[in-house]
Write a protein that binds this DNA or RNA. Structure first.
Length: 673
DNA sequence: AGAGGTATAAACATCC
DNA sequence: CGGATGTTTATACCTC
């Protein structure tokens, strides 16, 4: 408890070193969970829309950039102090922030938003500019909405075509699909970010306490229609605002919004009636009589959710009064509203960019598919190669690349899942020690994954999705003599993972703890002291049955392996191109092809398979990372490589890993991602 | 709800 | 004494 509370409290700064990173985008937490179903589209139209969007957004962008800069300035830079070996001394500042960052992906915290708002209010010039943009934005949003829809459809078509296309080789098809999938995911991600943002600002009803769930739901079930609805709502809000109709609930999303998807109202189900909210409200100012739970978008958990306002109210009526009195249509409210629009706009910009990219990709592929991205099989091979290259001299043996011998079944992670997973981590680069959800847990095959994504982990401060036990084992097995001193293990961690170059006190303590706790680690007295070795039998003993037993588990494992990093890498890359500083560039480094491939393959599987519903990772709070927990098993057969992945998996894995599955459990988990 | 796991923290014990 | 190592205990969260 203590730790947690502490960590959360400091949520503000993301990783120390990345002061800038924090700015990133708060959006990242959103994880797109569901893959929407696409249909058809025409590129030409889309292009036109793009141009229009760009023009409209140009001005806005500048403002946004300014905001970002301001935000960055505001953010505390905490130096990373790796040092402090002593647990007692650990610097709270360090750890806390980090952990927080991990947990709260969102870049823009309410507080930050407040700051921004305040700043905005004070700056008349900006307000003017914003006003001018308002109109353009409205149009733009509508266009975007349409465009998005079309894009989705188009993507879908493309995918379908590829699947059935007999002309292309399988590899090519797979590669293309992967690329598309990736792009699709990015687009979805953006959407989610947008939604999340809205939610944060209180534009969408979601109660704070339930944030996590709602988010999921949001992302999950989203379908074009729903998205449209959301967009409309947003648009309406703006319109109302601009028109300055009625003072009081200018921001109210009054547009009719039926409970439609579970996603929007997850809590609708819980609470009861979300739907009633807007319409009713509109009709009668105070008619909450019937619903005890006020479902006002700006009211949640007894707190006013107006940006910058956290007033608490006993009842809904009080809130309404407050809303009318404090947030009437005055300059301040208008300014705040505009700021909000800016936020939305920024997200839209990102979305637009990714959409363009997607289009370019599709266009290109349509014409000719030259170099397929990472071919499925190659992935593993490549990874291996990489390993050998980069790997330290000592490394070597079969161990290094253990793969799941078991079924190569393609991982079925739905896109959404993959996404979710990825986003948080990669984007966040939050490094602190945190406890994430180990969603899938069985990460047994760590080794392969580790190896494959070695470069990525070496450069990116992304927490590796493996348990300490797994990592320790890997370190020891990679050594020439299969034994290492504690210090050597530490060195391996820092050498292999950028993530472990920070918060040494925390993870070193964890390493020691794991060495002592797990029977599989045996301490041997040596000439020069004591060294640690691995008892494979013990290691494998852990929970053998699990994995081997259910195919689902196996799948999970596989999925868990690759994607986190990969996706993140891909994602980061895409984000990097955008102006928006989403992550700390430094950390990102260059993900290896492998990682990308992995990620992609994961994505593909998920997408292709069909996103499963699951979704709710529910990170209760802390972990942004979703869990990919359940990847449901799919009907896919390993052999079936419908998805590129399956091929890959099979190819590689077979060799080393028999054991993995078994033992991994213990490691099981990935802590993170 | 409970069991089995893992991550984090932290208190202690030992040894150098 | 202080730091590095190891052990243990406690707590929180996850997944099944």
């Amino acid at each position: 408890m203590m730790q947690e509370s502490g960590t959360e409290a400091t949520s503000n700064g993301p990783a120390n070193q990345n002061g800038a990173a924090s700015v990133e985008g708060g959006a990242r937490d959103a994880r797109p969970r569901s893959v929407t179903t696409p249909s058809t589209v025409d590129i030409a139209a889309a292009d036109l829309i793009h141009l229009q969007q760009h023009q409209a957004l140009q001005v806005a962008r500048q403002i946004l950039l300014q905001q970002q800069q301001q935000q960055q300035q505001l953010q505390p830079h905490q130096g990373t102090g790796l040092k402090s070996p002593k647990g007692s001394e650990k610097q709270p500042s360090l750890q806390v922030p980090v952990s927080v960052a991990m947990m709260t992906p969102q870049v823009i915290t309410p507080q930050r938003m407040q700051q921004i708002l305040q700043q905005q209010v004070l700056s008349p010039q900006q307000l003017q500019v914003l006003l001018q943009q308002q109109q353009a934005l409205m149009l733009q949003q509508q266009q975007l909405q349409e465009f998005y829809k079309k894009q989705q459809e188009q993507l879908h078509l493309q995918l379908l075509q590829q699947q059935h296309a007999g002309t292309q080789s399988k590899e090519q098809q797979q590669a293309q699909r992967l690329a598309f999938q990736q792009q699709l995911m990015q687009v979805q991600q953006l959407q989610q970010q947008h939604l999340l943002n809205l939610q944060r600002q209180g534009l969408l009803t979601i109660q704070p306490g339930q944030t996590t769930l709602p988010l999921h739901s949001l992302t999950q079930g989203m379908i074009p229609a729903e998205l449209q609805q959301l967009w409309k709502e947003v648009t309406n809000v703006k319109e109302e605002n601009s028109s300055s109709n009625n003072s009081h609930r200018g921001l109210d999303l009054s547009s009719p919004q039926p409970p439609k998807n579970p996603l929007l109202n997850q809590h609708a189900s819980t609470n009861g009636q979300y739907m009633s909210h807007s319409l009713k409200r509109e009709g009668s100012t105070v008619d909450d009589h019937h619903h005890s739970h006020h479902s006002h978008p700006l009211y949640g958990h007894g707190v006013c959710k107006w940006p910058g306002c956290e007033a608490v109210f006993e009842d809904f009526q009080s809130f309404l009064k407050h809303l009318n009195n404090e947030h009437a249509l005055d300059d301040r409210s208008t300014a705040q509203c505009r700021v909000q629009m800016q936020v939305v706009q920024q997200l839209e910009l990102q979305l637009a960019k990714d959409k363009e990219r997607l289009q370019a990709m599709m266009t290109h592929l349509h014409v000719k598919s030259t170099e397929p991205k990472p071919a499925p099989q190659p992935l593993n091979l490549v990874s291996n190669v990489t390993l050998s290259k980069t790997a330290p001299p000592e490394a070597s043996p079969p161990l290094s690349l253990p793969q799941t011998p078991t079924t190569p079944t393609a991982p079925l992670t739905p896109l959404s899942q993959a996404y979710s997973v990825i986003t948080p981590n990669s984007l966040h680069h939050s490094v602190g020690p945190m406890r994430r959800r180990y969603s899938d847990k069985y990460n047994m095959p760590i080794s392969p994954d580790i190896v494959q994504n070695k470069e990525f982990y070496m450069n990116a401060e992304v927490r590796p999705p493996f348990t300490y036990a797994s990592l320790i084992r890997q370190a020891i097995l990679e050594s020439p003599e299969k034994q290492l001193t504690l210090n050597e293990i530490y060195n391996w961690f820092t050498r292999m993972f950028a993530y472990f170059r920070r918060n040494a006190a925390t993870w070193k303590n964890a390493v020691r703890h794991n060495l002592s706790l797990h029977k599989c680690f045996v301490r041997v007295e040596n000439v020069k002291g004591a060294v640690w070795t691995v008892d494979e039998l013990e290691f494998q003993k852990r929970r053998p049955q699990k994995i081997s037993g259910s195919p689902a588990l196996v799948k999970n494992i596989q999925t868990s392996l690759g994607y986190g990093p990969a996706l993140s890498a891909a994602f980061q890359a895409s984000m990097a191109e955008n102006n928006i500083p989403l992550y700390t560039t430094a950390s990102i480094g260059s993900p290896t092809l492998n990682s990308l491939a992995n990620a992609i393959r994961e994505e593909m599987n998920g997408a292709m398979d069909h996103g499963n519903s699951n979704g709710s990772d529910s990170s209760p709070g802390r972990s942004p990372l979703p869990a990919m927990h359940h990847i449901k098993e799919e009907p896919l057969d390993p052999e079936d490589h419908e998805g590129p992945l399956s091929l890959v998996m099979t190819a590689n894995h077979s060799p080393d890993f028999g054991h993995h599955r078994d033992y991994d459990d213990d490691q099981g988990h990935d802590d993170m991602l």
